[in-house]
Amino acid sequence: MATTPESAHYQPIADALEDAVAQKIDRIAQMLNCPVKGEELRRAVTESRKEFLLAKQAEEDLEEDVLDDELIEDEEDDDEYDEFDWTTE
């Protein structure tokens, strides 16, 4: 990917950030493979992931309930007599 001359001065910063992130990822991988702390870390990651998924599911269920309520309200409005609708007479 070619960079523009205007962004060339950002390249050293981007490289430094990329190196720092790569080192952190390598360190996390080493920790997860550690026989002593690895199991504890994997369990913590699994539990936090479960909590995240449960919270996300609860949020989606709440959104579905709101949508269902809006649909019910719309259906109730359809039952009312409309004086300009000549098909109801």
Rank of each mutant, 00 (worst) to 15 (best):
E40G: 01
E70I: 13
V45A: 05
A20E: 12
E83L: 10
E59Q: 15
A22E: 10
E60I: 14
E75K: 08
L17A: 09
S7I: 15
E18P: 02
T4F: 07
L62I: 02
Y10M: 13
A44W: 03
T87H: 02
E39A: 14
R49C: 04
D69N: 06
M31D: 14
C34V: 08
I25R: 15
R27I: 13
I28R: 02
A20G: 05
D19P: 02
A8C: 03
K56Y: 08
K50A: 05
D68W: 04
F52D: 04
N33Y: 01
E70C: 06
R27M: 13
E64D: 09
E6G: 00
I13T: 15
S48P: 07
E83R: 04
E89Y: 10
L67C: 00
P35R: 01
L71Q: 12
D85N: 07
L53A: 01
A20Y: 07
V21A: 05
V21T: 04
D61Y: 03
T87Y: 01
V66F: 03
G38E: 03
D65M: 03
D74H: 08
L54P: 06
R42F: 00
E59W: 09
L17F: 09
A14C: 11
A22N: 06
K24I: 02
G38A: 02
D74G: 09
M1E: 10
D78L: 15
V36T: 14
F84T: 11
E80Q: 11
Q11Y: 05
E64P: 00
E6R: 12
E83G: 11
F52S: 05
T4N: 12
L41V: 09
A2Y: 11
E63M: 12
T4Q: 07
E63T: 11
D77M: 04
I28E: 05
R27Y: 14
V36F: 08
D82C: 05
P35L: 00
L67D: 10
E39I: 13
A2Q: 12
P35E: 01
H9M: 14
K50F: 05
A14I: 15
D68T: 11
I72Q: 06
A58S: 13
M31H: 08
D61M: 07
A55Y: 01
